[in-house]
Write a protein that binds this DNA or RNA. Sequence first.
DNA 1: AACAAGACCTGCATGC
DNA 2: TGCATGCAGGTCTTGT
Length: 279
Amino acid sequence: MPELPEVETVCRGLEQKLRGARFTKIIQRRQDLRFPLPKNLPQTLTGCRILTLTRRAKYIVMAVDNGQALLLHLGMSGRLVLGLGEVVPEKHDHLIFYFDNGVSLRFHDPRRFGMLDLVKEGDLVHHKCLKGLGIEPLGKELTSAYLLRMLAGRKTSLKAALLDQRLIVGLGNIYVSEALYHAGLHPERAAGSLSKAEAQRLVVAIRKVLNAAIEAGGSSLRDYVQSNGELGYFQHHFAVYDREGQACPACDCNLKKTGGIRRIMQSGRSTFFCPRKQN
DNA sequence: AACAAGACCTGCATGC
DNA sequence: TGCATGCAGGTCTTGT
């Protein structure tokens, strides 16, 4: 479920409650999620202190004081839930972590597309999940020149290209639709067909939608943590995503005539766009 | 190499 | 009500 803004919000929430905390007990209730879990995960982490919590792409990296890092991905349906004291496990609670400050953390993931691994800190960049990832969209590396270079000659759709984590990380099905809308670009356009001005619009749009969503995450949750302890899920208004048939924010068109926002399938996934604003 | 399609897994909304 | 279908915010693997 989460894309970059949600993972960022989860990460900040974890940071707040868990930086400096020590694992006191870990209950592992499954041997595998998307991949088999690392051997002896509870034994390895128990007693360790969390040094830092950072995000790379849609991964959370929890560095601990034994030289290792816990690498975590929430997949489509993963959730992390903070609590206090003893946890009564619910269905699909695969791991429960307890800390010396009284905080508990549940990893809950019905579809089990999430993953967890232990990596030596120095080996992080070589980990199969992290190597080959593209640039962070909120850093300095994302420029129109970079986009044009990466997309040059590519016949695939803009939608597919922006979902490709080897080029730019962090965008998923929602924010690709949102970014293309704000850039005024049709999702079926050939990725290699962008002009310099269009590429620049796309850069601005990507930053805008991601930053706005991160801000919504931070401001709509108190301290990034909801009252029920859940991290990273927040109310956010989308311009086009999941709004088929409605008017886009910039259209004052007659809905009956235009049909409003359209939904199409691209490689098996829904894309939403406004046919009047996006070309 | 680039690209599309299929696979993984469960839950939920919809329609008959 | 039960059952079938399709869809869900990700990414890895397979096949052309």
